Amino acid sequence: MRFKESSRFHLILFCSLFILLSACGATSNESTSNDGTKKNETASDSTEVEKDIDEEENDVDTDVDEKKDTEAKEAVYKVTPEWFVTPTNDANEKVVLLTIDDAPDKHAVEMAKTLKGLDAPAIFFVNGHFLQDEEGRKQLQEINELGFPIGNHTMTHTDLTTISEEEQKEEISEVNRLVEEIIGEKPKFFRAPFGKNTDYSKKLAEEEGMLLMNWMYGYDWDKEYQEADALTDIMVDSPLLGEGAILLMHDRDWTNDALSDIVTGLQDKGYEMLDPLLIENVNE
């Protein structure tokens, strides 16, 4: 009887100890689990903070890049009544604008490639009669694909002051139609043959969204300068050369031969060739 009571006592004691130890273990495991959860939550919070910091840094970088792009786009120039280009902000004043007329005749694509290799932007003013065959259309496409803006120089290079308004409209609007058909957009600039506009041509250019563009000087039409060296010398050393001057050249043999030296000569004098797309178009 005593043995049974003693065994029962020990069994109860053993069970009590087992329950107590289990409870302590559960508490310990729960505590560990809770601590683990807290640690995971802390780690998660830390990751979120780091992520936020990275995103803020990326936002700062993006803002800087966007600011640079905006500043670059804000380098805007305007054309003056005296046919200069001048900055409307603190952009470089020592620029010249290159323009090539009567394209694409014989050398326009080669001239465009020469200018591209020299990082020298220019406007190519086209005559519509060069765009009526497949070869002319291909040349215009290539000039456009090289990144050069296209200007309207009328269909047949007729003096607009000698023809009717209806004829002027045909001379100007038909070029716009052809150019848009070939490259997908209308010319952004208009230059009248011989620089001779009429009130009607000015109005029509405005309605068509084109900026009028004449020039400060050009010499390759003069027999005295229809040779590469002579043309280079006068284009680079002309007394008319100055900040913002608009330079006139044509798709001609001697101009093609002189073009590279003309550009490098101007660059050696510290002039930058102005990107025409930075010119404010008040008619757009």
Rank of each mutant, 00 (worst) to 15 (best):
D61F: 02
D90H: 01
D63E: 05
R252E: 15
N34P: 09
V64Y: 04
C24R: 07
R191P: 05
K51A: 12
P104C: 00
A228N: 10
I150S: 07
N58M: 10
D105T: 05
S31G: 10
M1V: 12
E30Q: 13
A245H: 02
S7L: 11
T154E: 14
R252A: 15
K78C: 01
T42S: 09
M1K: 10
E56R: 03
I279D: 15
G184C: 02
E66P: 15
Y77C: 06
A230V: 12
T154D: 03
I279F: 08
V60T: 08
D90V: 05
F3T: 15
F189K: 11
E134Y: 02
V85I: 06
A75C: 03
T47Q: 08
G195H: 03
T232M: 05
E207S: 05
S31F: 08
A43M: 09
K186G: 07
E110H: 12
A23Y: 07
K223R: 07
I100C: 02
T88I: 12
R137I: 10
R2Y: 13
S6K: 10
P239S: 14
E82N: 13
S260V: 10
I246T: 02
T32P: 01
V236W: 03
N40V: 14
I163E: 02
P149G: 04
D237T: 08
D237E: 11
V126A: 02
S238V: 08
T62E: 14
D52S: 04
D233C: 01
E227F: 12
E181P: 07
E56D: 03
L212D: 10
